[in-house]
Design a protein around this nucleic acid. Structure first.
Lengths: 246, 246
DNA sequence: GAGTGGTCTAGACCACTGC
DNA sequence: CAGTGGTCTAGACCACTCG
């Protein structure tokens, strides 16, 4: 195990961060799959030749970032979008009336295209590289609430089709994770208010021109690599976007 | 210093959380004011009769919650809304074009009223208790972008007036903090898309009926006491609401 | 140089899980 | 019961700030 070169080192970083980086690499390399347990703290301490407390601090940070999940008495696990508790992590929509409703994803279309300038820039692709576009509806209690258009890099998601989407139970990200080995780590969202265009209005059962919440999202996987660009139109007649500031 | 009653205790909580609670109480009691330094970790350890590491863990959590701010080599400070770095903590609005613009708050009106059923419920007041209502405009680069209507408990903010609002430089929360001793700790926001009514449209220089982002916020101070209810209408023509999910 | 927070260690013990 | 994460301690040393 490398030690930190004391003092003068220009790239100084504390030991526990180096450990964190090593664990992160192991995660990226797929050494442990989502949902699996990683080795115990004492094991990792031996492996990296540091004390258990140092490993602990590394894991602490990664747990705070939702990369790992600790379970007392059982072990530490790689976070997974298959975990039902993670379902609402990236979906901030709640009913105005309070309570929780089950969401249902209804895929509408899925086709291939070439990356235009905007998609290329956002997804970090070259102009003209293949992309996949998905249109889908999100329903709460049988009523359409969100219409999404999702842009994905074609290479990473080769084999994605409307059939695959329709077969899958659970969230889109759990599909991406189990079928394509792509784990979404974090996302940026930009919200605006827009007027409903004709087709969105029909899909969401609202009058054309009525105000909708436009949510643009870019999602990132390990190494801050962008792997999804999504634009959703939310009908906020019976639901709202909920956010906690602290 | 109390110790934790081992095992059987029904109200078990680790020592560092008890310390955290004690520090929190000291904060609420105003033992140290916002911006001031709290005693050093070793001092607090002596005062509470625990090890420095235990105090450290308590402070770690409070720093993560933005209640305290650590500064290596200097000390640990009570977080303050006067701190310019805290300015954008509760304002998620960013220009579409990127970059950062200075925001300017323009108070329009300030009047007294009695709490209706909704305000009473949200602010945890009795029906008919005095409240203060503020209307104000938020401008970016001299252009109006947000119109806010803000409901405050009259008792807590006695003495608030349009003149006071106009005199103050800086954010509203910094005014609340320095003048009324109320520190906002966290907030909940609910976003929807709505159509601009007549008066809002005029204030924001947009056509009547055009889509606006409605942001309802409830802010809390120590002890999760609600002390502000706010409804803002955001023009998202040149700005958007930015949110990070992780 | 003195004082602060930040890191790292080693060891003891507690709390929870599952066999 | 053994194995896991969770807490607590005590002490050493590093990094940063300021007078």
């Amino acid at each position: 195990m490398m030690r930190q070169t004391p003092a003068e080192s220009p790239t100084f970083s504390p030991l526990y961060r180096q450990i964190k980086e090593l664990i992160l690499q192991a995660l990226e390399n797929g050494e442990w799959r989502p949902g699996e347990a990683i080795p115990s703290e004492t094991e990792l301490a031996q492996r990296f030749n540091v004390s258990q407390g140092t490993v602990r601090k590394a894991i602490d940070e990664m747990a705070a970032e939702n990369l790992l999940v600790r379970k007392q008495g059982k072990g530490t696990f790689v976070a997974s979008h298959n975990d039902p508790r993670a379902f609402f992590r990236f979906l901030r929509l709640v009913p105005l009336s309070g309570g929780i409703e089950p969401a249902k994803s209804v895929p509408l279309e899925c086709w291939r295209a070439k990356a235009g300038p905007e998609a290329a820039r956002i997804l970090n692709l070259k102009l003209g590289e293949p992309i996949i576009i998905v249109r889908r509806l999100l329903e709460f209690a049988e009523k359409p609430v969100v219409v999404d258009e999702i842009y994905l890099p074609g290479e990473t998601f080769a084999g994605l089709s409307l059939e695959v989407l329709k077969e899958h139970q659970g969230s889109l990200y759990s599909l991406f994770e189990t079928r394509f080995g792509v784990r979404m780590i974090r996302a940026e969202e930009r919200l605006r208010a827009v007027a409903a265009d004709r087709t969105s209005a029909e899909l969401l059962h609202v009058p054309e021109g009525s105000p909708l919440l436009s949510v643009e999202r870019v999602s990132f996987t390990y190494g801050d690599r962008p792997v999804e660009w999504r634009r959703g139109l939310y009908s906020t007649a019976a639901h709202c976007y909920y956010n906690e500031l602290s």
